[in-house]
Design a protein around this nucleic acid. Structure first.
Lengths: 304, 304
DNA sequence: ACCATTCTGAAAGTAAGTTTCATCCGTGGC
DNA sequence: GCCACGGATGAAACTTACTTTCAGAATGGT
């Protein structure tokens, strides 16, 4: 019987729309059509009856109901009122900055900056909003109790993995990051009960990372996935799933906002772990800070 | 002639609840009972079915419908979504969270998450706000015209440097990141006019980075500094200075928010460069994306 | 006491939402 | 190439929610 994978359920009142767009790739085609309508204009969707919406999505009512269930709602009326609530909450930014939108061709730098910052900040905020503290807590506990933590990530997610490793190391936790698949597999094979393996992948489909995590799990380690898509392959080999909430654009394929969201989650876990052992962590930080002191040059008035 | 009590229709999105309490005295007793429930807890009312609400108000469904009409709604479902929307709107902003504040000792994870996300998002937004588009433009131009770009950074800033390098590389620009000081110095020594050297340092005092940037400048390269402190040593060896705006806390010495701010700036520069040569950059991105395709596992049907 | 008017809920009626099920389609095994 | 299987899908049956109708009860004026 499976180790019940606990997807951090979008919790309480907010983030449904994000949750839906995260789930989008894992939905069936007909459901995707519904989802797109809903995401495109939640307020409008809330106004429609189920039959109406089904027609607009060129599908049957049954599919709309299936869609409701897929995104974790009981039924259509429930979805409807949640959508209304969310639509009301987001008092859309007045200007024409399409959330998650592409950068218009003729954009000048000022526009580009505004758009990127807007999307990045959003991704961070929304990720935090939908992050389930309970799941985080369990992950923190796992890391805290681990004799060793392995962190995996490829490409852009590799930087995040590396960053996490370095952070844990600075507070005296034994953590590793393996940029190379083979070494990573070897390392994962040596994990055991009480150890923790963290896999980071924006898409959740990076086979290398999934494989390594799988390996770790097979050895009895507690596995954690950090991804943007709660139903992606990586979540199937994870005991705990933490999701980011970045709506990526086409042009910014590097998954830019996603990276920031990942870092935010990493920071939260890090502070969580550090907070568990406050004095020790602080000492460790001070010592490591001192270690690089000689590589600093004078001046720089620290703003307090 | 019936006195069609046409109450000035509550207009558009807001004020329904107020409107209802205004009309309350003019309603019939049974309707008043309904109204009181609704006003007392709109969100709760929105969750109930008409039968449920009728029972709670000790009356019949018919009366609830009459109530809907009395307050200017078409029917119960309409009332329901309006109530949901209003209830959602009236949630106050996330209380006084000290900007840049430390994490309080007794904090639980939910608080930690909120604080970190808040600070991170602020750092990103504020960085974008104070970023000078004109300077960015010049930096973008310099990078765009460079035959080679060197990027330097140590510690946490090293990840950012590395990230920037990888991004530029993905769109076909020749860029390097040197994690090691000696190699970096060697590389910097080989820079020439028309090349660009970028130094990243949160504090602006990392001697390794400053030295290398200095070296690059001496060789005639255009130098760019990315730091949080506009008066720090690194700015003295830079032709262009880009600043982040992160207010760091004491405990979070890892300069967590700063890193996100740096990444945002990097993203802006990157998109700026990419936008200069749109089709070529897009092609390059597509090619590199394809290159990793075989390392993805199925499932997650990507929409379109 | 009587009628007119309004209020009210039961019950009938209609529309919305939900379930079931047969069919279809693509995939993988033989 | 064929077949079995499983998921996806919509038609139709079904259930529940919502709306209307209507007759009785309450009120209030004469």
């Amino acid at each position: 019987m499976a180790k019940t994978t606990k997807v951090s359920a979008t919790h309480e009142s907010s983030g449904l729309i994000l949750h839906i767009s995260g789930l989008l790739p894992s939905l069936s085609p007909a459901e995707q059509r519904v989802a797109r309508l809903v995401v495109a204009d939640p307020a409008d969707a809330a106004r429609r009856t189920i039959t109406d919406l089904a027609t607009a999505a060129e599908t049957s009512e049954a599919t709309v109901i299936r869609f409701c269930r897929s995104v974790g709602m009981e039924g259509y009326p429930q979805l409807r009122i949640r959508l209304a609530a969310e639509a009301a909450r987001r008092v859309e930014p007045p200007d024409a900055r399409v959330v998650g939108g592409d950068i218009p061709p003729g954009a000048d730098l000022a526009q580009i900056i505004a758009t990127i910052a807007f999307n990045d900040a959003r991704a961070v905020e929304e990720t935090a909003e939908q992050l389930d503290p309970a799941v985080c807590e369990q992950v923190v506990d796992a890391i805290n109790g681990a004799s060793r933590v392995d962190i995996y990530g490829a490409g852009a997610s590799g930087f995040v993995a590396s960053d996490f490793q370095q952070k844990l190391h600075r507070i005296g936790r034994i953590a590793f990051y393996w940029p190379d698949v083979h070494t990573a597999l070897t390392s994962a094979a040596l994990l055991g009960k009480g150890d923790v393996a963290v896999g980071i992948s924006h898409s959740g489909t990076t086979s290398d990372v999934v494989e390594v995590l799988q390996q770790g799990r097979a050895r009895g380690a507690t596995t954690v996935a950090l991804t943007n898509f709660p139903r992606s392959p990586i979540t199937e080999v994870a005991d705990y799933v933490l999701t980011t909430a970045a709506r990526e654009t086409t042009y910014r394929s590097g998954a830019m906002a996603s990276r920031l969201a990942q870092l935010t989650v990493v920071d939260c876990l890090f502070v969580g772990v550090a907070a568990r052992n406050r004095t020790k962590a602080r000492r460790a930080l001070e010592v490591t800070a001192e270690a690089v002191q000689t590589h600093r040059v004078g001046a720089a008035r620290r703003s307090k």
